[in-house]
Design a protein around this nucleic acid. Structure first.
Length: 405
DNA sequence: AAAAAACTCAACCGCGCTAGT
DNA sequence: AACTAGCGCGGTTGAGTTTTT
């Protein structure tokens, strides 16, 4: 019948954890790994339910957790991802290394939500509250964007779930191959490997496809306006650069071109998952953040666009970092620009302005559906203004001395 | 200085999903 | 197919802390 209760056994302790309990849990997991959470408390000598132990570990004791104030970049990431994903805190957390879903959730509820509300922005829909009034039939122009987002997100979630399963399988098979359970390998290192693997972002892959879709139809020239005709290899975006660090690891820098005061966000490729991980630019990031954990470079055989394949797209890629484009169906997508497209979608992009000007003077071909084009440009202009407002708010907030940890 | 209000965040709760039997 | 165990997620709570009155 129903689920067996987890925490209603008599004698099990609840409430705040004591340092002694923390120590017991930490020592046990470091030595044995957590194994079955339900069985763990008895083995570790704790009068707690397994669920409580798991929560304490994942939200507090785990070694790869960063505590303290959220950085500006983290705030921006949370706001942007929340607009896309809603209250899917665990999904958002995969893009904020060392932050737990619980912490992000709390930070959203206690800080960011209020800040957006004060700005007159609905923190649920991320739309200006007045939009509902100005809209004739209750639907705003942004609804069409959100509809696209919802469709992609739905597909993304399915793909992500599969990826996680596969990742677990790979991880467990790797562990067994390495003989981790009984070898002389440092348990702490085992833990770090396990946890770092589990926190690697998985779902940005779909952004590539998303970016490709978004960049394709609009004549505002979202991202690939000029480059697409050359096979999507345009890397000369005004707002993104692909550079290579000393160890030949590409770092994609996404700038907020319309806001000169805004810091840029470096995206460091995680070659084992085929995704990019966000990290602050050098001026603001701390050593730990940019340390080995996020600069790990493994020559992994995992395809760059596993997520796309998972979604049923036919994808080809030459090698994880040597190829700047991949195929979705028959369409080339500039992979290195995918996050730019994501940011463009959220922030608008100066490219839009430039190309929209071009289009207004346009050639005969582009004048076929000029009304629709104008509408697209209008929508992107609205999006740009909206996101600039949000990000400016975050930037200018009096409580924001949070660029340090 | 004290009380009240507001805020923060660790922890709990219940549900849904998946894997195993 | 039905059931159970276990895990993870999102929503909520409440104790402790800080700020305001």
């Amino acid at each position: 019948m129903g689920r067996s209760p987890c925490c209603d056994k008599v004698g099990l302790k609840k409430g705040p954890w004591t340092p002694e309990e923390d120590q017991k849990l930490l020592a046990y997991i470091e030595e044995h790994g957590h194994g079955s959470w339900r069985a763990l408390p008895a083995k570790a000598g704790l009068q707690r339910c397994g669920k409580s132990c798991r929560l304490r570990w994942t939200n507090y004791l785990r070694p790869d957790i960063k505590r303290g104030k959220f950085s500006l970049q983290e705030e921006q990431t949370i706001i942007q991802l929340h607009a896309l994903l809603g209250n899917r805190w665990s999904a958002i957390a995969t893009h904020l290394p060392k932050r737990t879903d619980n912490e992000i959730k709390n930070y959203w509820n206690t800080h960011l939500k209020k800040r957006l509300s004060k700005l007159g922005i609905d923190p649920v829909t991320h739309k200006p509250k007045s939009d509902a009034l100005s809209s004739i039939d209750g639907h705003t122009k942004a609804d069409s964007n959100l509809s696209h987002m919802a469709q992609w997100e739905s597909a993304r979630l399915e793909a992500e779930a599969r990826l996680v399963r596969e990742s677990k399988l790979r991880s467990s098979s790797l562990n067994s191959q390495l003989g981790l359970s009984g070898s002389g390998v440092d348990p702490g290192q085992q833990l770090n490997k396990a946890t770092s693997t589990s926190t690697q972002p998985q779902c940005l892959n779909v952004m590539k496809a998303w970016q490709g879709i978004w960049s394709k139809p609009t004549k505002c020239g979202l991202v690939t306006g000029e480059g697409s005709s050359t096979g999507g290899l345009d890397l000369e975006s005004p707002t993104s650069t692909l550079c290579f660090s000393d160890n030949s690891m590409p770092v994609l820098t996404v700038g907020f071109s319309d806001n000169p005061t805004m810091s840029s966000l470096d995206l460091i490729p995680n070659s084992s998952s085929g995704t990019f991980e966000g990290a602050p630019v050098k001026e603001e990031c701390d050593e730990e953040y940019m340390g080995g954990e996020y600069k790990r470079m493994v020559n992994s055989a995992v395809p760059l666009n596993t997520g796309l394949q998972d979604m049923g797209f036919s994808t080809t890629v030459d090698s994880p970092w040597s190829s700047e484009s991949s195929k979705v169906g028959n369409e080339h997508i500039p992979v290195t620009n995918f996050i730019e497209g994501f940011t463009n979608l959220l922030l608008g992009n100066s490219i839009n302005d430039r190309n929209s000007v071009d289009n207004t003077s346009g050639d005969g071909d582009s004048s076929d559906n000029g009304d629709a084009d104008a509408m697209d440009c209008e929508e992107f202009e609205e999006n740009k203004n909206y996101w600039n407002n949000i990000l400016n708010l975050v930037n200018s907030s009096p409580s924001d001395d949070s660029t340090t940890f």
